[in-house]
Amino acid sequence: MKTILVTGSNGLLGQKLTEKVLAEGRVKLIATSKGANRYPIANGYEYAEMDILNNGLVKQVIEKYQPDAIIHTAAMTNVDTGEADKELCHQLNVDATQNLISLCEKNNIRFIHLSTDFIFDGADGPYKEEDAPNPLSYYGETKLLAELAVKESTANWAILRTILVYGITNDMSRSNIVLWAKGALEKGQAINVVNDQWRMPTLAEDLAEACLLAVEKNAQGIYHVSGKDYMSIADLVRKVADYWSLDKSIISEISSESLNQSAKRPIKTGFVLDKTIKDLDYKPHSFEEGLKIVDEQMKKVASV
């Protein structure tokens, strides 16, 4: 059985990977994250505190556990924070990745790197893996630089790009678009939603499954991983309202420009999933199915 080390295991994707490994036992898991373990079950895997900016500690942890593969989920993902604190964004997204890659090269470890649709400018989505990147934000720029570092390495690597990940865990450190829309509408708060950006929202479980498939199938190269439904952000929020029978009349559609966000967002991303479906046997859920899974998990969390 392969030993997999996951960075950023306290995040949404990291927790879904832990959940999957505990339920299915396909690999031996070493979960690592900054600070204490936030996953509610402590047995069935090992947890090691690991701040990816502490190179000495990262080396120590990796040499201690000697994993067969690393799934690198830790990153700065807040696009506006990336614009405001470029130095930290570069350290987390580029420098930390380069350090991990060099350790993978030295120790013959496979490297699965998580990337983003924000490496594209959104002028011509949905995108194939080989389409030319052109990031609009500093966050997108750092994720592209990390990809280039991965590609140039001699390690055995795969890059999984994804889009707008949603889902729920027991201990959410930050929200995502589905939970934000549901929470606001349930409170009767009027919300402004952009109607000129298109995405393919990704269920966190689907992304976790793709990560494990990439390890198991020894995937090489770049793979696009998202949900299968293409929609505007405004449509996405309306679908959330419909699913939970919430009031759609308090949703106002606005343009991206009127938001005055410091980081520019791509207009139309979305992915062509053919390669990932063919090579990895990836089976993404529809958005409706994803909402049903989130709903069932929320009921479970509420009943505990």
Rank of each mutant, 00 (worst) to 15 (best):
A132M: 15
I109W: 06
N134A: 12
K106C: 06
R110S: 04
N156D: 13
R110Q: 10
N99R: 11
E147D: 14
C104M: 03
K106A: 14
G125K: 01
N134E: 14
I159T: 02
L148Y: 03
K106Y: 08
I163C: 15
L164W: 07
T154G: 13
N107G: 15
V150E: 00
L100E: 01
A123Y: 04
S137G: 11
W157C: 09
N108Q: 10
S102Y: 05
A146V: 07
L100F: 04
F118Q: 06
F111S: 05
P135W: 03
P135G: 12
L100R: 00
C104D: 07
S115L: 01
D121A: 15
T162M: 04
N134T: 13
H113E: 00
T116I: 06
F111N: 06
G125I: 04
K106W: 08
K106V: 08
E141C: 15
Y139K: 06
I119H: 03
S115E: 02
A158T: 01
K151Y: 09
F120A: 08
T154H: 13
K151E: 10
T154I: 12
H113W: 11
K143T: 06
L136M: 08
L100Q: 02
V150K: 00
S102I: 13
P126I: 05
I119V: 12
E147I: 09
L145S: 09
D121Y: 06
P135H: 11
V150Y: 00
S115N: 01
S153G: 13
L144A: 05
P133T: 09
N108V: 14
K106G: 10
L148G: 03
L164Y: 11
A158C: 07
N108H: 15
G125E: 03
L100S: 07
H113A: 02
P133Q: 03
T116R: 11
R161P: 05
L145E: 09
F120D: 10
Y127R: 02
I112Y: 07
N156C: 08
D131T: 09
T162L: 02
G125H: 03
W157K: 04
W157R: 08
L114Q: 00
L114R: 05
F118W: 10
I159G: 00
P133H: 03
I112R: 03
D124P: 05
V150M: 05
K143A: 06
S137K: 01
T116G: 02
D117G: 03
K128E: 15
Y139A: 06
A149E: 11
R110I: 00
L145W: 09
D117M: 12
K143S: 05
E147F: 01
D121T: 11
Y127C: 07
N108S: 12
L164H: 09
F111K: 12
S137E: 09
L103F: 04
T142G: 02
L145T: 14
Y138E: 15
S102C: 07
H113F: 07
D121M: 11
L160D: 02
K128Q: 13
A149F: 05
T116Y: 14
F111E: 07
K128S: 15
A132S: 15
D124N: 15
E105R: 08
F120M: 14
S102V: 13
Y127M: 10
